[in-house]
Design a protein around this nucleic acid. Structure first.
Length: 593
RNA sequence: GCCCGCGUAGCUCAGUGGUAGAGCAGCGGUUUUGUAAACCGCAGGUCAUGGGUUCGAAUCCCUUCGCGGGCUCCA
């Protein structure tokens, strides 16, 4: 990992896969070094500070400390000042190897470091020193502090030592560092861009959804505009499922405790379930999952191998208790709707079913402009149910399907659920962030627990294979992702209002109203802005609402039977006959452009 | 749940111990306008909640609820 020419070489290097690796390796060293420089600055402020860990991360770095008092935002500027001094001194980073005994002596008053040393099997430990600050660290680092060309301390947070909530809560400082001021600024600009797209902000501004204290945390109300978008997404989802021979079903929101005992949820999932509702000496639970209902629907009659595969799909609303600290807008809620389906099939049908789910996944997600996928195949974890031979068979079926479809995937060793292997799909949004939505999970457990069977062509009872799958994941969460992906500027097929007709004066109102009737009867979502405002104000309003088409009507348009089309990009297409505008918009809707 | 921060009008925010403010939105007028904000006026708040300190609390302390950044977990 030594790169003597350091920054200069990486900076001069041209774009390319190998150089991209160079750059990310360089950034890792810079960030790791920045984290040491920061720890040094914290030590200057608090000589009694205890140091935990300070690694580089994908976008920056952090360091965890135990300090005599809580840090404040002002402290960050003081720490940053001190860091600037250290960087200006351009102190060399020096590495030495010591044995663990020596390391223990060096860090004798640093309990977290001692614990780390205890957990390293290697007798040779790396220590990096700059100035008079030394840290246990395997590196690599830049050659000297001056090579941290640009950094910024970003935020304060609490973090448990080793991520364990039974261990001490430490104070974490997050920061980032880059090889140049320019790269740092670009990163900060990206953060600002992401903040502008925040679905919580856009949801409020665009009137999409609200969350009410009076109703409860993590519970979503879809306002008319957001409801419109959601219903379009759901209608599309249903159509695509019907095309692929899914059966659409509905199941209730509560079920008796016996059901959840059979399914195992009360044993293994209780901490995520709402407490029981007592009715007529029976306990009912709000459903955290849809599977038991679909299984009972399967079980409602004797099944023949000829009926398989049976694909039961439902936009099923489930409720899960989530700790208050993890709730986050639409992305993490307590009541949400899974685009769930359970596929019951014969063993020989498994690969084809998995293929079908993957094809449906790409088709559904592709319609929303998600074209880049990361696929993970997760196999048997240590704690599992089912025979290893079954696991192998199911995992092979998943793998074979991925390979036959020539899909790139990564193996997530031991990452499967206890009840079966799975395929997860991550999508990349418009600003390069990854989101996991799709999961395809094989299940050995529930078919056994509910003892479901089918009669094979041999006249004998057999256990069907069962696959859970959700493609969008949760509708609420997916809507949140869509809002951020599109930055609130929904494509025409999803836009709650596709066009606003803007009459220039009141004498153009009748014409505008006639046009809106015509466009609505063509199936378009159009409104007239009939307020007593200037055209400029109406345009501004429509722009802020991110309406795709602004249709201006004045004397010229009335005379010509047209509307002047302004796009939300600001582009002015000039006067176009109303019938042509209808065609233009419908074409966009049909192609989901 | 835990650590830190925050909660003032529908929204965005000012106000840090001495009578609650602005802009936008809303409502009423005037205005009838050619591609991102016309003008005038009116109304709107138990300063999240409950308690405490004080002659006096939006302001200081505690409780509860909620929100934000994280930890952990997941869709």
């Amino acid at each position: 990992m030594s790169d003597p020419s350091g920054i200069e070489r990486a900076l001069e290097s041209k774009k390319g896969p190998a150089d991209a690796d160079d750059l990310s390796a360089l950034r890792e060293r810079i960030r790791h070094s920045a984290s040491h420089i920061m720890a040094d600055a914290v030590r200057a402020m608090f000589p009694e500070a205890q140091f935990a860990i300070g690694p580089p991360t994908e976008d920056g770095f952090y360091y965890d400390f135990q300090l005599p008092r809580a840090l404040t935002e002002e402290d960050l500027s003081v720490i940053a000042e001190k860091m600037i001094e250290t960087i200006a001194s351009d102190l060399p980073f020096e590495r030495r190897q010591v044995d663990s005994k020596t390391a223990r002596r060096i860090f004798e008053d640093q309990p977290f470091k001692l614990e780390i040393i205890d957990n390293i099997a290697d007798e040779n430990l790396g220590i990096y020193t700059h100035g008079d600050f030394s840290d246990l660290c395997n590196g690599p680092h830049v050659d000297s502090t001056g090579q941290v060309k640009a950094f910024k301390l970003l935020s304060l947070a609490g973090a448990y030592w080793r991520g364990d909530e039974n261990r001490p809560m430490l104070q974490r400082i997050y920061g980032t560092a880059f090889e140049s001021k320019k790269a740092l600024d670009e990163y900060l600009t990206r953060l600002e861009e992401a903040a502008k797209r925040d679905h919580r902000k856009l949801g409020k501004e665009l009137g999409l959804f609200t969350i009410h204290n009076e109703i409860g945390a993590g519970l979503i109300c879809w306002q008319p505009k957001g409801g419109r978008i959601r219903s379009i997404v759901e209608d599309f989802w249903r159509e695509e499922h019907l095309k692929r021979n899914y059966s659409l079903v509905y199941s209730p929101h509560i079920g008796k405790s016996k059901l959840w005992e059979t399914s195992g949820h009360l044993e293994f999932y209780k901490e995520n379930m709402y407490s029981a509702i007592d009715l007529d000496d029976q306990e009912y639970y709000l459903k955290p999952m849809n599977c038991p209902f679909h299984i009972l629907m399967y079980k409602s009659s004797l099944r023949s191998y000829r009926e398989l595969p049976m694909r039961l799909a439902e936009l099923g609303t489930v409720y899960r208790y989530e700790r208050t600290g993890v709730l986050h807008g639409l992305l993490r809620v307590r009541g949400f709707t899974q685009d769930d389906a359970h596929i019951f099939c014969r063993p020989d049908q498994l690969e084809e079913e998995v293929r079908g789910v993957l094809e449906l996944t790409f088709s559904l997600l592709g319609a929303f402009g998600f074209k880049d996928y990361k696929i993970y195949l997760a196999d048997r974890p240590e704690k599992h149910v089912g025979e290893p031979s079954e696991w192998t068979r199911a995992t092979d079926a998943l793998r074979n399907t991925l390979e036959e479809m020539k899909l790139d995937y990564q193996l997530d060793v031991g990452g499967g659920a206890f009840y079966g292997p799975k395929i997860d799909v991550k999508i990349e949004d418009a600003i390069g962030r990854d989101w996991q939505c799709t999961t395809i999970q094989f299940d050995f457990n529930l078919p056994q627990r509910f003892d479901i069977t089918y009669i094979g062509d041999d006249g004998q009872q057999h256990r069907p294979f069962m696959v859970h799958r959700a493609i969008l994941g949760s509708i609420e969460r997916f809507m949140g992702i869509l809002i951020e992906h599109y930055g609130g500027a929904f494509p025409v097929w999803l836009a709650p209002v596709q066009a606003v007709i803007i009459p220039i004066t009141d004498r153009h109102l009748d014409y505008a109203r006639a046009a809106v009737v015509e466009m609505r009867s063509a199936g378009l979502r159009v409104e007239v802005d009939d307020r007593s405002e200037r055209m400029n104000q109406k345009i501004r309003q429509a722009q802020l609402e991110k309406v795709p088409y602004m249709l201006i009507v004045g004397d010229k348009e009335v005379a010509g039977g047209s509307v002047s089309v302004r796009l939300r990009s600001g582009e002015d297409l000039g006067p176009i006959p109303v019938t042509s505008v209808i065609e233009m918009i419908r074409e966009k809707v049909e192609t989901k452009a």
